[in-house]
Structures are given as structure tokens and as C-alpha cells.
Amino acid sequence: MSIINQTDKETGSINRVRFDFRTIIPALSAVLALLVHLFVPNSPRFTLKPLPYFTMALIAVIIVTFIFMVLSLFSQKIRDRYAYKSWFIGASILLINLLNIATLKLMLLPIIYFPNPDRILKVFVDDWAFILKCLSHSLRLLATGYILGALAGMITGILVGWSRKWSYWVNPLIKIIGPIPSTAWVPIALVSFPTSFSASVFLIALAVWFPTTVLTSSGISNVQNSYFEVSSTLGAKTLHKILKVALPAAAPSIFVGIFNGTGASFITLMTAEMMGVKYGIGWYINWQKDMLSYANVYAGLIVIAATFSLIITLLFRVRDRVLGWQKGVIKW
């Protein structure tokens, strides 16, 4: 490790150029993977045409990890974050390396159901436009059902949590209809709605509605009375009390409800797509499975993982903005 102190001429501060040995791990792991891929012979039972994609991907990874390693020399911020994650990134690359060995080099698993990384990459290269189209159809369906379900859930929850009359009539409904899994409604949804799109929207909305309404109503009814009393003495009328006191106070609970609803919406989306939609990522996976094109199945799964993880991350970013005042929060 070499430590060189340089004074930055512009700001006058000391900018330390430092090498953290951890930052070389990802690049080394990628180089190892490439060497294994190129020089270890393929399994003799492997009869498919060899593809260049994995090699290209590994070279790209080597370049990117090398760039980050160099950047880490100069920037403290990048160095801290990248070095911290280096072990994980290196291990992940190693895992893909092992996968490649298990499939392409040693053919430990039946190639039909467990294709090597090259074939999965080929799916992305050939079909990326179609996959994107399927994804956008899925997202359209998901967004429509999700937003309708969340809004319906919050409105129902506020009514039931605030008013005893509404609670009397609607609570039993929530308790009976809510626990029914959304997918059990499929037969009824199919005959009740004009299009499979609207039926799917209904199912997804129903899945989001239940946890949202339960947690909203309990959040509202658990707001401590002293908040309402204080707001009265400041001149608040009923509408103010609902919108300006009850709702913000119940917001943490409402968020938990929406978060639960998100997971439920993902599951229902997949089921709804297998019911009969024109295009969709769940539909794509199912269709490819029927055709025994498992490389495509994996490609679809990877797309789902990336997209849904991103959706949840966005949800938590919104939470951080709106509920920044909370003391102890769910970590994501």
C-alpha cells in the first residue's frame, strides 16, 4: 500500500491518493472467470454452437471493475463505497464463474433446464425488444391495479378508521372478502369483466386493497386522542382533523400496508398474466416454459428480479421523503 499526500492547489486541502487492496478483488475475480471460460475445455457432451456473449460480458465487467479501481485511488467517497462492496461483487462474479463451470465445462445439470450463461445472454441479445415490450405491458397492468387498489384501500381505511357507522357496515366485509386470495377470484373475474386486462386490474387492485385498508384503518383509529384535542384548541374542524392530523399520524402504518400490498400485487400480477393477457413478462415466462426454452425463462426471471427490486427501492425512497420524521423505520 502506498500513501502519497498531495495538496490540492485549488482548495488547499489534502487529497490523499490511496490504494485499498480490496478494490482489486472484483477485477481479479472477473479475470479469473474469463481465463476459466477461455482456457478450460468445454464438456465433450456439449454439442451446441459456442457463443461469444459470455466472453464479451466478462471483458466488459473487467473494464468496469478496473475503472472503479482506478477511480478509487483518487476519490475517497468512491473508494469507501466500492471497497466495502468489493468482497460481495467479487463473490458474485465467482458465483457466475462456478455456474459457468457447472453448466458449460462439466455439464453437471441437464442442459435443457439449466442452460449456461452464454445462452441466457443470447436471449437478451436476440429478444431484448420483445422482452421490453412484455415488461411494459406488465408494468402498465401493475401500475393501474396497484394505484387503484392503494387508493381504494386508503379511502376505505380512513372511512372505517374514523367513522363508527362506516366501520359497522364495512368492517365485516373487509374481514370476509379480504382474506380470500386474489387468485381465487379468477373464475368470477373472468366472467364479470369485459376484457382480461380489466379483470387482471381488478385482481391486482383487490390484492393491494386488503392490507392497505386494514393497516390504514388501524393506523387512524390508533392515533392518540391528545393530538385531536390539541388540534381542536388550535381551531381545527373535522375535515382538518382527518386530513391534517389523523392521516399524517397514521402514515407510518399506511406505508406498512402499502408495502405488504406491493408484494401481494407482484404475485397476483404473475397469476393474472397466466390467465390470459396479450403480452406480459409473466406470460412470456410461461410461454417459454411451455416451449422448453429455459434460457428464456431465466432471462425473464432476471428482468423481473431487477424491475421489482427497483420498484420496492423506489417505494422506500418515497417513504424516506414523506416519513423522514420517523424515529425507527423499516430498513431496505
Binding site: S226, Y227, V230, A251
Partner: peptide, 10 residues
């Protein structure tokens, strides 16, 4: 009040 009862979200 004895407890300030400030609105924690504000």
C-alpha cells in the same frame, strides 16, 4: 398540556 404533544410529522 403537560406533555408538549407536538405533531411529530411537522
Amino acid at each position: 398540556f403537560q406533555d408538549p404533544t407536538l405533531f411529530p410529522w411537522l
